[in-house]
């Protein structure tokens, strides 16, 4: 459920940015500093910005897991590439017909970018399904923690019951495999076009 809501926002935000954004040094942000080095600053900042009423839960919630990943260099990059392919004449023609930027984005650009949007959605889903380190640090309530954390905790609990461990791993991997088999074309296309490593 969280993923659906997150991706609606994600696609919307990426769409907004990609449209006019032509010259951005995208990967720089992603590669700037290893996450491990910014964990403490991030933790402090998240606590200050999103401290809920109960101080003990720190940032523990959905928001902290969603917000930082809404704007990703990856989706911006991907959509920008897609939009670059639109002929300028199309935009001019739309303007003559009286369509503004929002209108143009909505009725011309959007319907013609479905496959790229699907790519963004699938890659976004994979990233949130596989999220580990960020939620590990930021959250503590099992009811809002993502599945990888549950699996890691289970590794500790199941001890050496390898049959249980394998079953758990299979459960966690199954949706990803299913999605991958269905959306393989889009995924591979996205990676091949931008070459960004998850």
């Amino acid at each position: 459920m969280r993923n659906i809501w997150k991706h609606a926002v994600l696609i919307f935000a990426a769409l907004l940015v990609a449209y006019p954004f032509y010259y951005m040094v995208t990967t720089a942000f992603k590669n700037m500093m290893p996450a491990e080095a910014t964990l403490i600053p991030n933790f402090v900042m998240m606590t200050r910005l999103f401290r809920p009423n109960d101080p003990t839960r720190i940032v523990d919630g959905y928001l902290v897991q969603i917000l930082p990943f809404i704007a990703t260099a990856f989706s911006i990059f991907l959509l920008r590439q897609q939009f670059l392919g639109f002929p300028k004449e199309l935009k001019d023609a739309a303007r003559i017909d009286g369509a503004g930027d929002v209108r143009f984005l909505w009725s011309v650009v959007l319907p013609n970018s479905v496959s790229t949007l699907v790519t963004v959605a699938i890659i976004g889903f994979l990233a949130s399904w596989n999220a580990f380190q960020w939620p590990l640090i930021m959250t503590s309530r099992p009811d809002i923690q993502p599945v990888q954390i549950g699996l890691n905790a289970f590794r500790g609990e199941a001890g050496s019951s390898y049959h249980l461990l394998m079953a758990a791993a299979a459960f966690v991997v199954a949706p990803v495999v299913a999605l991958y088999l269905v959306g393989q074309r889009y995924l591979v296309q996205g990676v091949a076009r931008t070459g960004i490593r998850g």
Binding site: A14, V17, F21, M32, P41, L67, A71
Partner: peptide
């Protein structure tokens, strides 16, 4: 159009690095 994503990138990527 730019502001939301720029703001998010600034908060979650640029600021922690400076901090």
């Amino acid at each position: 159009f730019l502001f939301p994503a720029m703001a998010l990138l600034a908060i979650f990527k640029v600021f922690p690095a400076l901090f």
